[in-house]
Simulated scan of single mutants.
Amino acid sequence: MRLFRVALACALLVPGVPPVSAGAWLMPDGVGFASSTTRLTWPQDNALLGWRQPEGRYDTLYFEYGLGRRLTAGADLGRSISGGGKMLAFLRLPLKDDGALRASAELGLGRIDGAQALRPGLSLGLGGAQGWLNADLLFEMRGDAGTDYKLDLTLGLRLPRKLRMILQLQTGVQQGDPPFARFAPSLVVPLHPRIQAEVGASWGLSGDASAGLLLGLWTEF
């Protein structure tokens, strides 16, 4: 809790500097962001002994591009809340785009697990030069297959040497299943002025008995 209060205080002190690819902040006009990540998972009771044989692997590709000051377009490819494959394109519009507190809404269209899908979402963020807080709420609507829900809460801190620490609580509800929650911390390390690596882990807290390892690359252009 002390870390949370410190980050919140920093965010309130210095407004106007958004994190890379955070839902409440739109991309600047003509600026793009892309990331590719791989998440490996193991049962929590065998994560150390069985590290050579992951139980699951999830690859994702994410893209955003600023189409003017008040419109961001993007694509989200990989795995959905239910674990099925997803291919979605989306548009994001600002609801509040000035000051430390930001809000945006988005609408995604595409396919999830082979079915046509609509994905509306809402994001709220509080940011500053030293850190940010963000909440992303998404609804994956698949017609007769039902609707899945996802809420991610993210605390980010800007560290010396251009490092970034990300502490995320990932929660969701898949149609017909109990809710799940997992803790996913990561560290973002600069490799080049426009390329960064993300190394992280995850641990299921409720409704999820997995442990995970995340490796990713970010780029801005």
Rank of each mutant, 00 (worst) to 15 (best):
A22N: 09
A22H: 09
A22K: 12
A22Q: 09
A22E: 11
A22M: 09
A22I: 13
G23E: 01
A24D: 01
A24L: 08
A24C: 05
W25I: 03
L26R: 07
L26G: 03
L26N: 02
M27W: 02
P28N: 05
D29Y: 01
D29Q: 10
G30W: 05
G30E: 02
G30N: 02
V31N: 05
V31E: 10
V31D: 07
G32R: 06
G32Y: 07
G32L: 06
G32P: 02
G32V: 04
F33C: 01
F33H: 12
A34V: 12
A34G: 04
S35A: 13
S35E: 08
S35G: 07
S36P: 02
S36K: 08
S36L: 12
S36R: 14
T37K: 14
T37G: 09
T37Q: 11
T38Y: 13
T38H: 12
R39P: 00
L40E: 02
L40S: 06
L40M: 11
L40I: 08
L40Y: 13
T41K: 15
T41M: 12
T41C: 10
T41R: 15
T41V: 13
W42L: 08
W42K: 09
W42M: 08
W42E: 01
P43G: 08
P43M: 01
P43A: 10
P43W: 12
P43F: 10
P43N: 06
Q44L: 09
D45C: 11
D45M: 10
D45W: 15
N46E: 14
N46H: 15
N46W: 13
N46G: 15
N46C: 13
N46Y: 13
A47G: 04
A47V: 15
L48W: 13
L48I: 14
L48Y: 13
L48G: 00
L48H: 05
L48N: 03
L49D: 14
L49M: 13
G50M: 03
G50Q: 04
G50V: 04
G50S: 10
G50R: 09
W51F: 15
W51C: 04
W51T: 06
W51S: 11
R52P: 00
R52T: 11
R52N: 08
Q53K: 14
Q53C: 07
Q53P: 00
Q53G: 09
Q53M: 10
P54Y: 10
P54C: 05
P54H: 05
P54Q: 05
E55D: 12
E55C: 04
E55N: 11
G56Q: 10
G56S: 13
G56E: 06
G56N: 08
R57P: 00
Y58N: 12
Y58R: 14
Y58A: 13
Y58V: 12
D59T: 14
D59M: 09
D59N: 14
D59L: 14
D59F: 14
D59S: 13
T60P: 01
L61G: 05
L61N: 05
L61P: 00
Y62I: 07
Y62C: 03
Y62W: 11
F63Q: 01
F63P: 00
F63K: 02
F63N: 01
E64V: 05
E64T: 01
E64Y: 06
E64W: 02
Y65W: 10
Y65K: 04
G66P: 00
G66I: 06
G66W: 07
G66A: 04
L67P: 01
L67A: 06
L67W: 05
